[in-house]
Amino acid sequence: MSHLPDEVLARRAATGKMEYFEELLARYRVRVYRLCYRMAGNAEDAEDWTQECFVRVYQQLGRYNAERPFTPWLLKVVSNTCVNLARARSRRESRVQVGLATEEERASSQGDPQHRTLANAETEEIQEALETLSPLVRQTLILWAQEDLTFRELGEALGVPLPTVSARVQRALVHLRERLLPGKKRVKP
């Protein structure tokens, strides 16, 4: 089964064959978790959100067109789910707790020097800065950064035009730059 492309797995999983869904889960668990982690801001919510994302993916497999690439479709489902969860949470809470996330992320990334330098010292600050972005803008930025997508691929995954995607990321970068790199001259796009 491991040699089958995602599209074939998805089509078979859509017929209710759970073993193919398990393979998809194994392939995408880390990517989806990381997106959820950045969107949720803490490990506990990230787990719940990852679970909710995969449930949505399973429920919507029947609508997936296997003639199209699977990854953008999955990212779109995950993205929509995360944005909805973020909006729902922001209605319930005024602020997200990030303490648990800091410890867990530090523990899980000790072997990554780049991460140590970029994230550990600034995790809380980065997460807080991300929280100040609207869910849509935040999700676009996270997908762009985490998935290393081109703007065109990002637009396809989110179902929005290229200029809109670019504008969202640009806006997010300017905002983060002002918060995280205050010594730098402000960029005025």
Partner: peptide, 15 residues
């Protein structure tokens, strides 16, 4: 700022 912030936003958290 693009490269710095992109690297900062990326996470290596594991489920």
């Amino acid at each position: 700022s693009r490269d710095t912030l992109r690297d900062a936003v990326r996470t290596t958290a594991q489920p």
